[in-house]
């Protein structure tokens, strides 16, 4: 069973998103939460990096964190899903383990 990876820091500030994406296995999921949501905005320089992550992996953004930083679903780059805390819990259930890239 795959892994849920969580990233909570802006990729503009730290390397945790990059490290996370470098360590994905087939079918893994990535959740961008807290300040990490800024990396998912369309037009930003990390959109290509996210797209280049394994095509079999899904990338989600925690909606309340996105809203708190003045962004809406429309602002997200293509192919990125939006989840609430319940969706975060569902991702943790659907994967065998949760790996936090602090």
């Amino acid at each position: 069973m795959p892994t849920l990876h969580t990233v909570n820091k802006s990729p503009y500030e730290r390397s945790s998103l990059r490290s996370c994406l470098d360590h994905l296995a087939e079918g893994d999921s990535v959740l961008m939460m807290e300040d990490a949501v800024v990396g998912a905005r369309r037009g930003g320089k990390f959109v290509e990096v996210l797209k280049a992550a394994r095509p079999s992996c899904t990338v989600s953004v925690l909606a309340p964190d996105l809203a708190a930083r003045g962004m809406k679903a429309d602002d997200l780059a293509e192919g990125i899903a939006l989840v609430d805390y319940g969706g975060f819990v569902d991702l943790a259930v659907a994967n065998a383990r949760v790996c936090a890239w602090l």
Partner: peptide, 25 residues
């Protein structure tokens, strides 16, 4: 791993815990 207010970690954990309980976990 972090205290309240400086980092969001405790808020995030609290909200995750509530959501998990609401789903019956």
């Amino acid at each position: 791993n972090e205290g309240p207010y400086t980092h969001q970690a405790s808020d995030s954990a609290y909200r995750f815990a509530r959501a998990a309980l609401e789903k019956g976990h």
